[in-house]
Amino acid sequence: MVTAIAIARMSDLFAVVMLSGIYSLLSASLFLDLDAVDVAFTEASVGAGISTLLFLATLKLVPRYEKKSRYKPTLALGVVIATGALLIYGTLDMPHFGEADAPVHQHVAPRYLNDSMNEVGIPNVVTSVLASYRGYDTLGETLVVFTAGIGVLSLLMVSRRTKEKALQKVPADMQNQIILRVVAKMMLPLILIFALYVQFHGDYGPGGGFQAGVIFAAGIILYTMLFGLSLTQKVIKTEVVERLTAFGVLLYAGVGIACMLLGGNFLDYNVLRHDPVHGQHLGILLVELGVGITVAAVMVTLFFKFTWRTVKHKYNQ
């Protein structure tokens, strides 16, 4: 909370972004304290990782300091106070924190906890709700990521010619940091293996396609930071990554269609195999893979696009 107030007061945007990264990490530990392991994992990798990275990439392109505002934010304060009053008013009748007999624990959720082992057959209830009971929401979520990818792609386009010219002029940033480069080379396989572990272990422990995708992307981003865009692009073609963003969504929705063709409802994994629980396993595995592919591909695309802008600006200067 102190962090949040500090963010509100500071005008150095770099510090603001750093603080918001810290804020995310603190949030993640708080989520952990509230038993939300999967959420904590995601918040740590997204809020403290990817989002801070994107902010920093943007800050490289825009001025670092905020101008002092000329207006007194009286109206804003009024709106905020009104909202706050409504919220506090709303909390008055809430079931108390941690109470086991609150309505949320009585309806709907008990079935997930009691029957998911028989119906879906995996111990991580969050994964079984995410990928099966409410699998359609997760398809939507993957589509949101894809949409953001399309948005950034269309906004931050850099033509191939500029790329080629720019590359000749701008060298990689960290050519001389030998220790970093060696360490990174050693880390990279570990990061990628860890990503795969998170991807396929999501059924038993915290993790799943989304977190794995982010970690996988982080590995590639680390590589790019140290070895430069040109080298990375030799290994990973932009066009391929762009198509992969679409492929993940197609894989997810394709599983749904396959279920329909086999006589079930959309995303009804039971029909994928003779034994419903096996079918669920297969379905969840595939859709999590779809999520992972799209997320990793979109995150890498986002990073590439922001970095290309930086390179382009340097070149233009």
Binding site: V108, S132, Y133, R134, G264, N265, L267, D268
Partner: peptide, 13 residues
Amino acid sequence: SYQLGGWAAPWGI
């Protein structure tokens, strides 16, 4: 009415 994933209403979508 259509049940997504074959799960009945308040549990599924």
